[in-house]
Amino acid sequence: MGESQKGLLSVIQKLKGSTEQELRIVLLGLDNAGKTTLLKSLASEEVNTITPTQGFNIKSVASHGMKLNVWDIGGQRKIRPFWKKYLDNTDLLIYVIDSADKKRFEETGLELSELIDEENLKGVPLLVFANKQDLATASPASEIAEGLNLHTYRDREWQIQACSAVSGEGVQDGMNWICNNIVNQKKK
């Protein structure tokens, strides 16, 4: 408990009645990567009527006895500068990539590396979803991992998971990874 500096707000956290443990998860990635679709798929909601996110979405999902507060923030270029404001106290970063959008692999890699350097995300575990595997032109997750140089990340846990947010395939695998690694770690 940071005593006087940012004290009071951290104090207020303790007033919450619930004994349930909460995780703050931030869902980022370029526009059209499928973040909101993924979020809705996580919350078992309809994924047919999703439009580009101008602001952000937040959903609380119960999983493995935890409450996961998932923040999905719009990925359009003009919104990206706002990402920083949502990184405080983050327990996990989920980064979503459109595996079929090869032209923007470089751009998405740059954005990710910038995020990784953020002070607020220091040591925060990273889960990359190689989304849109349902498309024929999608690159395999291993290829994307290589392109992102994920193997050079030594300061945090990371994982890449192929998935299709539309069909839901692979999404649960990613969540299992979260629960096996992050949740258990946090409980310790």
Binding site: Q54, G55, F56, N57, F82, Y86
Partner: peptide, 9 residues
């Protein structure tokens, strides 16, 4: 609306 605006934050 389901979606939140950046100004909310």
């Amino acid at each position: 609306e389901d979606e939140s605006k950046l100004t909310y934050t």
